[in-house]
Simulated assay, not measured.
Amino acid sequence: MDFQRAQEILNSSDTYEVFYQGKLVWIKGLNPDDNTADVEILGEKIHTKVPVNELVEGGSFY
């Protein structure tokens, strides 16, 4: 995923599926200086920093 799309998802009122290494994550914040995202791995309650380009968008929920 590119940084701009991650920012659109973060700022959207809609909910989107986003995956990191096959795990569903919630984007909590973005860091433009190093092109990373602060995410929570859902179901595991793990917060971590990952490269935005390793995030994969799934579907959307309305």
Rank of each mutant, 00 (worst) to 15 (best):
D33S: 08
G43H: 10
G59Y: 01
F3Q: 00
K49L: 12
A6S: 08
L42K: 08
L30P: 07
M1F: 14
G58P: 06
G29R: 03
K49T: 12
E57S: 13
R5A: 00
A37L: 03
V52H: 14
Y62S: 15
N53R: 15
T48R: 07
G43M: 09
R5D: 02
S13R: 14
V52A: 15
E57V: 14
E8K: 11
K45D: 15
L24N: 06
G22I: 04
S12Y: 02
F3G: 04
S12C: 01
N53L: 15
F19R: 07
D38P: 07
F19A: 03
V25R: 05
V56T: 12
I41D: 01
I41A: 06
V50L: 10
S12F: 02
D14C: 00
E17Q: 07
S13M: 06
I9R: 01
A6I: 04
E57L: 13
K49W: 01
Y62N: 14
K23S: 04
W26P: 00
N31Q: 03
K28V: 10
S13C: 00
V52N: 13
Q7T: 08
V25W: 02
M1R: 15
I41V: 13
F61A: 05
E40A: 11
K49N: 14
G59A: 07
T48N: 08
S13K: 12
F61G: 03
E54P: 07
N31R: 02
Q7W: 12
E57P: 06
P51N: 06
V25H: 01
D38C: 12
T36F: 01
D34E: 11
D38Y: 12
V52K: 11
S13Q: 13
S60F: 15
S60W: 14
V39F: 09
D38W: 14
F61T: 03
G58K: 07
I27G: 03
E44L: 14
I41N: 04
Q4M: 10
E57M: 12
